[in-house]
Amino acid sequence: MAFLQLKSIGQTYFSKRTATTALENVTLSVHEGEFVSFLGPSGCGKSTLLSIIAGLLAPTEGEIFLEEQPINGPHPKIGYMLQQDYLFPWKTIKENVLLGLKLRGQLNEEQVSNALSLLDEIGLSHVLDQYPMQLSGGMRQRVALVRTLATNPKILLLDEPFSALDYQTKLKLEDLVSFLLSEYDKTAILVTHDIGEAIAMSDRVILFSKNPGYIYQTFNMPETLKKLTPFETRQHPDYSVMFQQIWKELKNIEENNSD
């Protein structure tokens, strides 16, 4: 039984003059505990697809099921994390972390202490009463991660969450996210345009083509890589093999599109 199921999802945007198809016939299943990456050139609709799964955007075609239940709107079991941290500058770190619980009306003692201990686990309990602008980019993105995890979602949707960070911070954060997700047994979907990041973090990489966006190819990561942390994966010989394969296909997509 698939945990998350996408059935022939299609998305078309309308403007006065044009109708643009961003996504076409995307069918996909994700298993519980799996880490899947959406990879593709910009404009392939991968972020749109993530917004659809998050329930922020209704697809023009197709349906989504989570544990056999259709999704129409933001779902409590789905957490969504954006490219930048989008911590609210007028709230303290504590208020930011508890925002999701507050919005869902789950601001009880147990949930709050869970959220705060999560913040403690990633080593940020000392900034509770500070404001986001007092923190570095990496710290802020870690806080944003805790904010997303605080409502205890089963699936995490990550929309290029590391792209605004410097390389070193990004590598550290990849390891942290990977560790936290497997520790709490979460399912995750990562949108990225970074091949290395996709290989390092995922169990499965789904490559999208563009105009319109559809699933071009799926790569299952070898077992040797799945066990390793993202940082270790990057050092492994199989990593380069995988990288070359995906690189070749990405180039194919671009060449097809330029014709």
Partner: peptide, 19 residues
Amino acid sequence: NYIKVVRSFGGSKFQCFKE
């Protein structure tokens, strides 16, 4: 995107406005 954050937590229009 701030509104997106609130909406992704199932926030209502009133909550988007207030928060």
